[in-house]
């Protein structure tokens, strides 16, 4: 088993006829993903690698059963496209698009919540079930099947950590990138809950980074509700903090957000925190043996 995705998941690609949409659709199909339809307004009737293209999501959902929509659309239409997917009855959405305005993300997040839909991203690299399928942009040659769940705010760091685990013979059940924008459609805690319920996942690696307070929230969840061991890594311990302007951000975060705050909070919750990237495989290996 895996979380959120498997080889039977029927996937829609919004923005399928763009350069990135086309290239990534090919990669997804080659990795075993069931891409059943695509959408680009104005391109209805075309085909991309044999996948039928529709003008609207509603036409796609009228013609095909769809479990998951993955979006490669320009940032300025991301909000419209996500809401279109939700309104057409799709309840799992991954928004790959980067540079989405955060006010649009807030609307999408609230909209998804209201309609019980799961929105991963924006700026998510997607989800991969190694050896089986993937949605999004993760390069599958970086992953191998196994029992470690990886959840990461950064995309490329998720690739790196997975590949480093593969080097020592440790595979992954599911790897998911959350996107590290100011606001994420789905937070770390919600995905930890899914990994906690997944029989195939024995250990979870959580890759966070400075900013926001999601890692601190995750620490509380792990301490109180998580049955499986979690290894964490926080990127950015040596990064000089930016020149802050105004006080509002500091008041809202209330001392959270720094690498130190996250590492301390996770340690206090019983999570082993790797201080360097290359410690992660060793810590995971210890837990699995």
């Amino acid at each position: 088993m895996s979380i959120l995705l498997n080889k039977d998941t029927k996937v829609l690609v919004q923005g399928i006829t763009g350069n990135i949409g086309k290239t990534q659709t090919e990669y997804m199909i080659k990795s075993g993903t069931k891409v059943v339809a695509g959408v680009t307004p104005g391109k209805g009737g075309e085909k991309v690698f044999g996948v039928p293209v529709f003008d609207t999501v509603l036409e796609a959902t009228n013609n095909y059963e769809i479990d998951f929509s993955v979006l490669f659309v320009p940032a300025r239409v991301a909000k419209d496209s996500v809401i279109e997917a939700i309104e057409s009855g799709i309840n799992k959405i991954a928004l790959i698009t980067e540079h989405t305005p955060v006010h649009d993300t807030m609307v999408m997040k609230a909209y998804a919540k209201k309609h019980n839909a799961l929105l991963i991203g924006p700026t998510t690299p997607g989800i991969v079930v190694p050896g089986e399928c993937k949605i999004g942009i993760l390069p599958i040659n970086m992953f191998c099947p196994g029992n470690v769940g990886i959840i990461s705010r950064s995309g490329t760091l998720a690739y790196e950590v997975a590949a480093n685990l593969c080097l020592v013979g440790i595979g992954q059940s599911t790897v998911i990138g959350m996107g590290a924008d100011m606001v994420a459609g789905t937070n770390l805690v919600e995905i930890l809950e899914l990994f906690n319920l997944d029989n195939e996942t024995k250990v979870v690696v959580l890759i966070g980074e400075v900013g926001g307070s999601q890692e601190e929230d995750a620490a509380a969840f792990i301490k109180n509700k998580m049955d499986k061991p979690v290894i964490a890594y926080i990127a950015g311990a040596s990064v000089p903090s930016g020149q802050r302007m105004g006080h509002a951000g500091a008041i809202v975060e209330g001392g959270k957000g720094s690498a130190k705050s996250k590492i301390d909070t996770l340690n206090n919750a019983g999570v082993k925190v790797a201080m360097m990237l290359n410690e992660i495989p060793l810590l995971v290996k210890e837990l699995l043996s």
């Binding site: 760091l157 790196e160 890594y233 950015g236 990064v239």
Partner: peptide, 12 residues
């Protein structure tokens, strides 16, 4: 490529 990877690389 990627801010998280860039930060982890700087730390390393």
């Amino acid at each position: 490529s990627g801010a998280g990877l860039a930060m982890a690389t700087m730390d390393t």
